[in-house]
Design a protein around this nucleic acid. Structure first.
Lengths: 359, 359
DNA sequence: CTGTTAGCGCTTTCAA
DNA sequence: TTGAAAGCGCTAACAG
């Protein structure tokens, strides 16, 4: 018996086909079984640790499999199990520039932490282009798709839900069947930051924010206005026309050159902290003397500037962790019931927002 | 006919099972066929555009499928086709910190560009933790695994090749069966940069580099030494003990406080350009007056500092593009023959390395 | 305690 | 031009 016959309506190589030195066919379960003088079932049970087998047999099966370099065919397993253990990942923001999101430290961390957590639970994460419709990847066997920070007019979530694919996103999907979410407590974060700045003596805190319809950004804006109202302050908001260092620097410039100069700056946009400091310097501010600065940022550069920049961390790692936990639970239960969880942020106070003469 | 019977040795829900309101079973090909009054074969052919069918029938099949929200089962297709169209992606560098690589703008861009290019060719990219052995993901049906910038003592490439999984990496795998590569021309990049600095008047160019065994970093070091030898210059190399802003800032500090002060600095480590400038300032250098600066970096902040920082771009986008092109070609040919391609870098000269009084 | 068998959903011969 | 049937590799039900 030189070779196991592979018949059936299978794509086969004809004799005339040039046949580039192609790898020998993969080792299958039957091959292992035959080699070990056992049956498929036995080997399968041995390898999966199921069934009641004698230790000797189990050992023998495993040995043979290892020796032959057997690797189970995932497609067959998936077909059998009806589950692919594949999760799609797409970022809703940045819809215009499908792949730039990883350049934002927040999304970079969120993405990698999500991939890590997913893998730990036995799911593989597939990166998808932001803002793409399902057209491009409708055929991938996703058990769920994560839509990070969808924008308000984004149809992805609807499309996905309509296609009966469970969606995992932020709190904007709350309550929809098949939709689950994690979110960050934007309101609490804003209040904590503004309170801190006020504690340090700030009375005219300006906010710089991208002009985005993300739930997070809207939440920040709302909370800021509410806080100002509660404290009798005039809101000072500058919207950045777009994301990226350029437009946000412009917005910061705008905020710093306002008729009534601010005495604190809260930047909730991905702008490299050193550049914020540079902008302040450029406009004649001393930080933290005339201007307190807090950036919502995950950049590690913040700790290395002079003065170090206070940051508000949105804790992408925790968000990812909590999210995957929830998603996996929902998936394993086959649960359509919506569910969600809120993750707290963390304010890291550094030199840029601490007055020497204050607590 | 209320429901198609689903029998067979399939995991089925017993009556006593609480049965959380689980979604109705997915629409299968047979369901569409039955609904349309056609056979599986016909519908399959219609949907795939194969076979010779009357336009009317084809239309009808497509219509019905659309109406019913049919989505082909990828696992079944894969099993049939023997191909999963899944590519693994793992970064070799950063083996110690499995997921930090995305925080490097270079890897962020490389990763997203790779995912984009792969998807465009119909392959999904799965993100894997750096430095992980296959143990964690051996069962995923990868048709190939991309190992970005493996370190010298990394076993991943060997393991993968031994498991008969095609590997795509950098030129360090050149010539091994089943291995393909793209790489950046480190030598040319270094020469171009050093020539440029010399043109601008630099005579003591210091190099800052992570202490890494990546092919790229070694190539840079070698080329630097060769260039110094050719020009009769003393090499001035400072190795950063680790990656990340902290250690690299330290290395820059070291380079800038050497007994013989350098008149140019070439930083080939992921350090935020504004921080390089700040370090120079801290040590009393005027840029570009006393010190010319070039950073190998993909950071967009470089363009927004004062002065803007010259950067050497390793062109991750092009690397990804060319790489996937090659990989897909190899995969589609079932080709074991090693192959590779070299991508040129690009030096973007900005204010930090241009003397006012020079070309 | 082990082996035979059916069938997951799909595509592809091959026959009608 | 359309349909019936086989089989991709695997696991689980059921016999032996």
């Amino acid at each position: 018996m030189t070779d196991a016959p592979r018949h059936g309506g299978h794509p086969s190589r004809t004799a005339s086909d040039p046949a580039p030195r192609t790898a020998p066919p993969r080792v299958r379960l039957v091959d292992v079984a035959r080699e070990a003088g056992l049956s498929k079932t036995t080997v399968s049970a041995a390898l999966n640790g199921t069934g009641r087998l004698s230790p000797a047999v189990r050992e023998k099966a495993r040995d043979t499999a290892r020796r032959m370099g057997y690797r189970p065919n995932a497609a067959a397993r998936q077909l059998r199990a009806g589950r692919a253990r594949l999760i799609g990942y797409v970022v809703g923001e940045f819809a215009g520039r499908p792949w730039t999101y990883l350049e934002s430290p927040y999304f970079a961390q969120l993405t990698s932490a999500t991939a890590a957590a997913a893998l730990r639970h036995g799911y593989a994460l597939v990166m998808l282009p932001a803002g793409s419709l399902q057209g491009e990847w409708a055929d991938l066997p996703f058990e769920a798709v994560i839509v990070a920070d969808p924008v308000a007019d984004d149809g992805v979530v609807e499309d996905l839900l309509a296609a009966r694919i469970p969606v995992f996103s932020d709190a904007s999907v709350e309550g929809r069947a098949g939709a689950h979410w994690v979110d960050v407590d934007a309101g609490a974060a804003v209040r904590e930051t503004l309170d801190h700045l006020r504690d340090q003596g700030a009375r005219r805190t300006a906010l710089v924010l991208p002009d985005s319809t993300t739930r997070f950004h809207r939440g920040v804006l709302t909370a800021y206005h509410a806080w100002c109202a509660a404290h009798g302050d005039t809101p000072r908001v500058t919207l950045a026309a777009d994301i990226g260092n350029g437009p946000v620097v412009e917005a910061v410039d705008g905020a710093l050159t306002a008729a009534e100069r601010p005495d604190a700056l809260f930047v909730v946009a991905e702008l490299s902290p050193p550049l914020v400091l540079e902008a302040a310097r450029r406009h004649g501010y001393d930080v933290p003397g005339d201007l307190l600065v807090v950036c919502a940022s995950e950049e590690t550069t913040a700790a290395y500037t002079d003065p170090p920049v206070s940051t508000l961390s949105l804790r992408p790692g925790e968000v990812a962790e909590a999210g995957i936990e929830l998603l996996v639970a929902a998936l394993e239960n086959g649960d359509d019931e919506p569910s969600g969880v809120l993750v707290p942020t963390r304010l890291m106070v550094r030199g840029s927002s601490r007055r020497a003469d204050r607590g």
